[in-house]
């Protein structure tokens, strides 16, 4: 008994939690649940609609088996379009990486120590990033016409924003000591970047680029929906004409392609930087 009283004296917060501690969690959970239900209702969810839709979806999934491209010629068309998709992702990602390098340096506080430049470049990169790849694709279609080239440019543009931000963060997190070492030998600003900063951050950047190659392959599969090349056009067309055997074939080949690229880029990343967390999108 005295033991219990001693414990009570030592940890008053545990034995008599404040109202906030006792009810904070349930109140927050209740608020989220209420807003979720309100949101579902507002957006037009209803049990009838869900049941109906699930029934439809079940029929559609039934029609997806077996996955069947129809004929060998169609299968070749789809696989060719898939190759185009991978090509779009490859070119877009690596061109963006090259172009984002100087921007990343510009937006890094420890390279360009100017508040205004830092603010403008960061916000500029954020604005580019805030516009979805699909919207960039629509804009580039106006410039170079329909086709995969517009898709390459769309991925390139939106990735410049992403890479610029990631690179500048990597550069800011770089070790200061090599830079001091290089400076102490009387090096100029370019030497400082080339020999002081880049050797440390280059592997990190390469890892991020490889990671985004995989994620961009997934984005490149949908930009065809607006006419910017790749397999998206076929996929949207087959879904709209309710050819679910074709749809299943296309989706499965996309999954296989992404899995292969993931395995390759994962292996390369591991070889370059070892296991390290990269932001998942």
């Amino acid at each position: 008994m005295t033991e219990l009283e001693r414990l009570k004296r030592q940890h008053p917060a545990i034995f008599a939690p404040s109202i906030g501690q006792r009810f904070g969690g349930p109140i927050a959970a209740g608020g989220i649940a209420l807003s979720l239900i309100g949101g579902l209702w507002h957006l037009g969810f209803s049990p009838g609609r869900i049941v109906d839709g699930m029934g439809q979806l079940g029929t559609m999934i039934g029609l997806m088996f077996p996955p069947d491209p129809g004929s060998f010629a169609r299968a070749m068309i789809y696989l060719n379009a898939l190759g185009e998709t991978v090509a779009i992702a490859f070119l877009g990602t690596f061109a963006a990486a090259i172009l984002a390098m100087p921007l990343g340096l510009l937006a890094a506080k420890n390279v360009v120590a100017n508040r205004i430049v830092h603010f403008l470049s960061r916000r500029g990169l954020d604005s580019i990033r805030g516009v979805d790849t699909l919207i960039w694709a629509l804009i580039w279609i106006n410039v170079v016409g329909l086709g995969p080239f517009a898709g390459v440019l769309a991925i390139l543009t939106s990735d410049i924003g992403t890479f610029g931000k990631l690179f500048s963060e990597a550069i800011e997190a770089a070790d200061k000591r090599p830079v001091e070492g290089v400076l102490s030998t009387g090096a100029g600003p370019l030497h400082r970047i080339r020999f002081g900063i880049l050797p440390g951050v280059f592997p990190v950047m390469l890892g991020q680029v490889l990671y985004y190659f995989e994620s961009n392959t997934r984005s490149a599969t949908i930009i065809g929906i607006v006419g910017a090349g790749g397999i998206g056009l076929h996929l949207a067309e087959q879904i709209r004409t309710l050819e679910f055997g074709h749809v299943a074939f296309i989706v499965l080949s996309i999954l296989a392609a992404v899995a292969v690229i993931d395995a390759i880029s994962g292996r390369l990343r591991f070889a370059i930087i070892g296991k390290r967390a990269v932001p998942v999108d």
């Binding site: 609609r49 109906d52 839709g53 979806l57 559609m60 996929l235 879904i239 709209r240």
Partner: peptide, 8 residues
Amino acid sequence: LIFVIAFG
């Protein structure tokens, strides 16, 4: 795309 067909 698929859900638009199933759920409207």
